[in-house]
Amino acid sequence: MADKFIDNGVEQTKGNPILAKMIWYFLQATNAPVGSKAVLPAAQTSGTLTIGGDSIDEQTKFGRVVLPSTNEDSIDLESYVVPGDKAIDIIKNAKHDGKQVKVWRVVVDDRVAETETDADGKAHKVFPADFGYGVVDELELDDGDDMVSASYTLNILDKLKTGTFPLTDEQIAALKDMYEFERPGETTGDFGPETDGTTDVPAL
């Protein structure tokens, strides 16, 4: 008897890819008090999420057997060192004190944003995010000829958890812009060197 013909079709997604600059990584020390803000590393240059792990790979008389074994997710981040950047202190202190670090990878793209409603019925914009507790593998500060750069790896406990991260349009604008409009004589000095450049973005 001839095999029954099967054709379930194909599927494709079309559109513009997500820009890497719209992937933001937020950090928080595990000993930060309840209600503390997340910290966006300053001058981030790159971030890499690796979904890794080992597999059981054995040969038998009847062929190869491959089974999942462990989860070994990790996040690699690189940024330039900016005075007052709390992210560097969070990583350095966690490494020295043997503590973990909370990390969020957030896709800040309106095409994937959703709306969540709080207990008062107010709508809030949220973005897809991965969250995990990470152990600092190594912090490297490169004092080369150019700008001082920092690179570090966070090895994730268990595996990354999927959820959402709230960000308003005002918060996104404040985090993206280096400085605000000002009028003549309102401030003095160059931007950056005279201040720590910290942006305190209000909570929702």
Rank of each mutant, 00 (worst) to 15 (best):
K86W: 01
I75N: 08
K14W: 11
D57T: 10
T168Y: 08
K92Y: 12
Q44H: 06
D130A: 14
K102D: 11
A20D: 03
G197E: 14
F191S: 03
D177L: 12
D85I: 06
T30E: 15
I88E: 11
P41V: 00
E170T: 05
A2R: 09
S69N: 10
T60Q: 11
I23W: 02
M22A: 08
L19H: 05
L19C: 04
G163M: 00
L139K: 15
D3H: 09
V81H: 02
I91N: 04
Q100R: 11
G144Y: 03
F5S: 01
E170S: 10
D109E: 02
P193I: 13
R183V: 14
L157D: 12
L157Q: 12
D158V: 12
A203G: 14
A113I: 03
G9K: 01
P83W: 01
E116G: 11
K21E: 02
A129Y: 03
N31G: 09
A38T: 13
A32V: 05
V107S: 09
G197V: 13
V81E: 00
L154P: 10
T117Y: 08
K125V: 07
V148P: 01
L167H: 04
T115G: 04
Q59R: 10
D97F: 09
I6W: 00
V10F: 14
T13L: 01
V81N: 01
L40H: 14
D3Y: 07
D177Q: 13
F62H: 03
A42Y: 12
P166I: 02
V201Q: 00
M178I: 13
G47E: 04
G15S: 00
D145Y: 05
V201R: 03
N71E: 11
D143E: 05
G132W: 05
Q100S: 14
E78K: 02
P68T: 03
P83Y: 02
P128N: 09
K161H: 15
Y133H: 08
S79L: 06
I90M: 00
P83D: 10
M147F: 07
T195G: 14
H124F: 08
E116T: 08
G192W: 13
A42I: 05
F62L: 04
G15V: 01
D196S: 12
E186T: 04
T30Q: 15
M22N: 12
S36I: 06
D97W: 10
A20G: 10
F131S: 15
P202R: 11
T164I: 09
V39C: 14
R183D: 14
Q171S: 14
A20H: 02
G98P: 11
E194R: 05
E138Q: 12
L160R: 02
D145A: 15
D57N: 12
T30M: 15
Y133T: 00
T195A: 10
Q28L: 09
R105L: 06
Y80Q: 15
G163V: 04
L167Y: 08
R111V: 00
K86D: 07
Y80A: 13
A87F: 07
I88W: 00
G52C: 06
S74L: 08
G52Y: 11
D169F: 14
D118I: 03
D85F: 09
W24R: 13
W104F: 12
A94F: 08
T117V: 15
L40N: 13
F191K: 06
D110C: 07
D169T: 09
G197F: 15
V106M: 08
T195I: 09
V65E: 08
